[in-house]
Amino acid sequence: MQKLANWQNKTNQSKLVTAAPYYTGVVSALEGIKQLKRQLKIAEEEREILNKEG
């Protein structure tokens, strides 16, 4: 079973031509993950600041 990162690399290299219909779904999922990671980092920083103050 291939991991998502491997599929993304192959898609970026145009090696997964048959995956074209699914590409938009993968891209939007990766963008969503990226956004969630950013939000998590901000929340962790805010929690750290609040813990230092209290």
Score class of each variant (00 low, 15 high):
Asn12Met: 10
Tyr23Thr: 03
Thr11Ala: 08
Asn9Tyr: 10
Thr11Phe: 02
Ala19Ser: 11
Ala5Gln: 13
Ala19Trp: 14
Lys52Thr: 03
Leu4His: 02
Gln35Met: 10
Asn9Val: 06
Trp7Glu: 04
Ile42Asn: 10
Ser14Phe: 08
Val17Gln: 08
Leu16Trp: 00
Glu44Pro: 00
Glu31Gly: 10
Lys34Cys: 09
Glu46Phe: 01
Ala29Asp: 04
Ala20His: 05
Glu45His: 10
Ala5Asn: 11
Gln39Tyr: 07
Leu36His: 05
Asn12Ile: 03
Glu45Thr: 11
Leu40Tyr: 12
Asn12Lys: 13
Ala5Met: 07
Gly32Trp: 07
Asn12Ser: 11
Asn51Glu: 11
Tyr22Cys: 11
Asn51Thr: 03
Trp7Tyr: 10
Gly25His: 05
Lys41Gly: 02
Gly25Lys: 06
Ala20Val: 08
Glu53Asp: 11
Glu48Ile: 01
Thr18Ser: 14
Ala43Met: 15
Ala20Tyr: 05
Asn6Pro: 01
Thr11Asn: 01
Val17Met: 06
Glu45Gly: 03
Asn9Ser: 13
Ala19Phe: 15
Glu44Thr: 01
Leu50Asp: 05
Lys34Tyr: 07
Thr11Leu: 09
Val17Phe: 08
Thr24Ile: 13
Leu4Val: 11
Glu31Gln: 14
Gln35Ile: 04
Pro21Val: 02
Thr18Gly: 07
Leu36Gln: 07
Gln39Ser: 14
Glu48Gly: 01
Arg38Ser: 15
Ala5Gly: 04
Thr18Asn: 10
Glu44Tyr: 01
Lys52Cys: 02
Val27Thr: 09
Val27His: 03
Thr18Asp: 13
Lys34Phe: 09
Leu4Phe: 06
Arg38Asn: 15
Gln39Thr: 05
Pro21Tyr: 03
Leu50Tyr: 05
Tyr23Gly: 01
Leu40Pro: 00
Trp7Ala: 08
Val26Ala: 05
Glu46Val: 03
Gly54Glu: 05
Glu46Asn: 07
Arg38Leu: 15
Ile49Thr: 05
Ile42Met: 13
Glu53Cys: 07
Glu48Ala: 13
Gly32Gln: 12
Asn51Tyr: 06
Pro21Asn: 02
Glu45Met: 12
Lys10Ser: 06
Asn9Gln: 14
Gly54Val: 06
Glu53Gly: 02
Ala43Gln: 15
Asn6Leu: 14
Ile33Thr: 04
Glu45Val: 07
Lys52Glu: 06
Lys37Met: 14
Ile49Asn: 04
Gly32Cys: 07
Lys10Thr: 02
Ala5Phe: 10
Lys10Val: 02
Lys34His: 13
Thr24Val: 13
Glu45Ile: 08
Asn12Ala: 12
Gln13Pro: 00
Thr11Tyr: 01
Lys41His: 07
Ala19Arg: 06
Trp7Asp: 03
Leu16Asn: 00
Thr11Gly: 00
Ile42Trp: 12
Asn12Glu: 13
Ala43Cys: 12
Glu53Trp: 09
Ala19Asn: 09
Asn12Gly: 09
Ala19Val: 12
Glu48Pro: 00
Leu40Phe: 11
Glu48Ser: 07
Ala29Glu: 05
Asn12Trp: 04
Ser28Gly: 01
Val17Glu: 08
Arg38Lys: 15
Gly54Lys: 05
Leu40Met: 13
Leu4Gly: 02
Arg38Asp: 15
Gln35Thr: 10
Leu50Gly: 01
